[in-house]
Nucleic acid binder design. Structure first.
Lengths: 138, 138
DNA sequence: ATCTGTGCAAATCTTTTGCAGCTCT
DNA sequence: AGAGCTGCAAAAGATTTGCACAGAT
């Protein structure tokens, strides 16, 4: 991975390596702030802008993808994650990933009936996850 | 519509009426800035915050819905619009609305298999619309 | 030596809020 | 009168950028 970045013409550095490592180590939707926290455990002086800049570079080179679930922060996730959609629990904030071939197939059919050439899509379900439903008074 | 707002315990005013009218007249995803432009043609002194506040009120009372397509601005649309999803053209920015029952059905099936109680969802297809595909060099 | 990455502070951009005055009811 | 609007300016929160310096090749 670090090597691929190298191939892409990017320079490595102590801090950048750490940012990249921590980002892929978590392998979870992560906010910039959350990633900064992780990075600072190993390189306490790291600045917020470095994390933003590094993630931007990863996105531009196709190693990461931005996700925006309507919260205040943008979330990022590794781009090599197999395609999936998201179910967001409005009660606890948890994000569950899922994937369904039939869904993909129908989306493709709809797109072609619109004459649309689809390059990406996103589907999010909002609701309550099983454990929040169990805990709920109603 | 204005009457419904009245029933909801809201006061009317010259400016608010205009904001509401223009919002529903356009019946299109609209940004706050775009709506302000329209409103200012009839009430030039209108402030940006009034538009924000009015839209917020409409959302809170269920008359409007917020949409966020990843651009800089949040877009709003009338809530009485029948349910639909969006296809966003990455070339020209046009947003096409569509609706597909099979898609809805499968989403419901997926949600229940996750144990999720879904209250809302959103699906967006990103790609190129027919006319941009036609114009494209490639 | 040169080009790139870094931290910090300042700038930007969208959206929200405080406030004093004006408008509804 | 009293509650709710309004515009303006200031605030807030997330992300970006300018700059001078340190680090990588």
């Amino acid at each position: 991975m670090a090597a691929s970045l190298r191939d892409a013409g990017l320079r490595r550095s102590r801090v950048r390596d750490i940012v990249v490592e921590e980002f892929f180590a978590a392998a979870q939707h992560m906010s910039v702030e959350a990633l900064l926290d992780r990075v600072r455990k190993r390189a306490p002086e790291t600045g917020l802008s470095t994390v933003y800049r590094t993630l931007k570079v990863l996105v531009e080179h196709g190693f990461a993808a931005e996700r925006d679930f309507g919260g205040a922060h943008t979330l990022f996730e590794p781009a090599d994650t197999p395609h999936h959609d998201h179910a967001v629990c409005v009660a606890c904030g948890r994000v569950i990933e899922f994937e369904d071939d039939a869904l993909e197939a129908i989306q493709a059919r709809v797109a072609s009936s619109l004459g649309f050439e689809v390059t990406a899509h996103r589907l999010e379900l909002y609701g309550r996850c099983p454990s929040c439903r169990a805990h709920a008074a109603r």
